[in-house]
């Protein structure tokens, strides 16, 4: 609670600072690169490779925005942020946008004065147990010891879920995901709970992934998305519509492979508007007409980004699930480009 008040106070202070420095786009253009906040490392979402180049699903969003603004996906300075520093970094103007698997919640949007510009991954909290335990549902977990990261929303969700189902559990508090993996493998706890994407990534690293199962229950909604400061809607629009462009590109079948052909002109007016061969959508954002072309070329459309970083062919092996297009029964539904 105290923490929330402090964060709130900081955010209010940050708003006044942010308002004074409006027109983020001009600042970004003058600087020549985008400052994007990412995690200090989360498998599949953001991590530096051996050459120090950041890669991942969240990183892909940053690169798309940089490409939309500059035409160069590498014009990004990545600022690693922790759970504590991420919001102040954004509200103080140290970073222009935050793409750090951050859950869109009411208080963060309203009280902390941020603007979530969409959802790039629909996550939810799940449970992983050893197969040997013979558990097939989270409701069978009465009396289990649960490894859980302290100070996160997962801790609160867990308490809510077990109370609602009237079963008891014993928490084993841990600090980081790495610690959790060790504790879980050492049988210090029966169950490990965190976001389902994190569970999948963790399970993929085990020696014998087949000995562990992720239970079917998903006990919370965790819509993760990029966010910007309140007070500069034009900049928020750029981030929002860049993400939408990636999503709609998948829906329309525009990929980084065929985009060069499609730019020549197609019979589909929406593709034409998206790619800037028809209409003036780019200049309305204050960008070039080929902004979306650059954004899509940066790492591919939404589906390509997903497959490359966290999809079924990667060690993490996440299926699309909720993150499929609305036409395929998922939740991705980008507003029309018109």
């Amino acid at each position: 609670m105290t923490k929330k008040i402090i964060l709130g106070a900081l955010a209010v202070a940050g708003l006044s600072a942010g308002a004074a420095a409006a027109a983020t786009l001009d600042d970004v253009k003058a600087r020549g690169n985008l400052n994007c906040g990412v995690t200090t490392g989360l498998t599949g979402f953001a991590a530096p490779d051996a050459n120090g180049v950041w890669e991942g699903f969240d990183v892909g969003v940053c690169r798309a925005v940089a490409a939309a603004v500059f035409g160069d996906p590498m014009a990004v300075e990545f600022t690693p942020t922790t759970g504590q520093t991420r919001f102040t970094a954004l509200s103080s103007g140290e970073i222009d946008m935050l793409a750090r698997n951050t859950t869109w919640t009411f208080t963060r949007d309203v009280d902390l004065k941020f603007e979530f510009t969409g959802v790039n991954y629909y996550d939810g909290q799940g449970f992983m147990v050893p197969k040997a335990l013979g558990v097939s549902s989270a409701k069978d977990l009465d009396g289990a010891t649960v490894c859980i990261q302290t100070g996160t929303t997962t801790e609160l969700n867990l308490a809510d879920y077990f109370r609602a189902n009237n079963i008891s559990y014993e928490p084993v508090p841990i600090e980081t995901n790495a610690e959790a993996q060790q504790q879980y493998l050492a049988n210090a706890c029966d169950v490990y709970t965190t976001d389902a994407s994190g569970l999948a990534a963790t399970r993929a690293t085990f020696e014998n992934p087949g000995d562990h199962v992720v239970l079917p229950e998903i006990i919370s909604k965790e819509p993760l998305g990029p966010l910007v400061r309140h007070g500069d809607s034009e900049w928020g629009d750029i981030v929002r519509w860049t993400l939408n462009a990636l999503i709609v590109a998948e829906e329309l079948g525009v990929t980084s492979a065929n985009i060069d052909e499609l730019v020549a002109g197609t019979n589909n007016p929406e593709i034409n508007r998206l790619l800037g061969t028809e209409g003036e959508l780019g200049p309305m954002l204050g960008l070039e007409t080929d902004w979306a072309v650059n954004a899509i070329k940066a790492g591919g459309n939404y589906g390509e980004l997903f497959e490359k970083n966290i999809g079924e062919n990667t060690p993490i092996g996440l299926s699309r699930g909720l993150n499929a297009q609305w036409t395929d029964g998922g939740l991705l539904y980008a507003p029309p480009f018109r």
């Binding site: 995690t39 200090t40 490392g41 989360l42 498998t43 599949g44 953001a46 991590a47 530096p48 490779d49 890669e55 690693p80 980081t176 790495a178 993996q181 990534a201 963790t202 993929a204 690293t205 085990f206 990667t314 060690p315 993490i316």
Partner: peptide, 14 residues
């Protein structure tokens, strides 16, 4: 911090 970041790559997680 880098050890965390290195662990976060799919190559070296774990």
């Amino acid at each position: 911090g880098l050890s965390n970041a290195i662990r976060a790559t799919t190559d070296w997680n774990g």
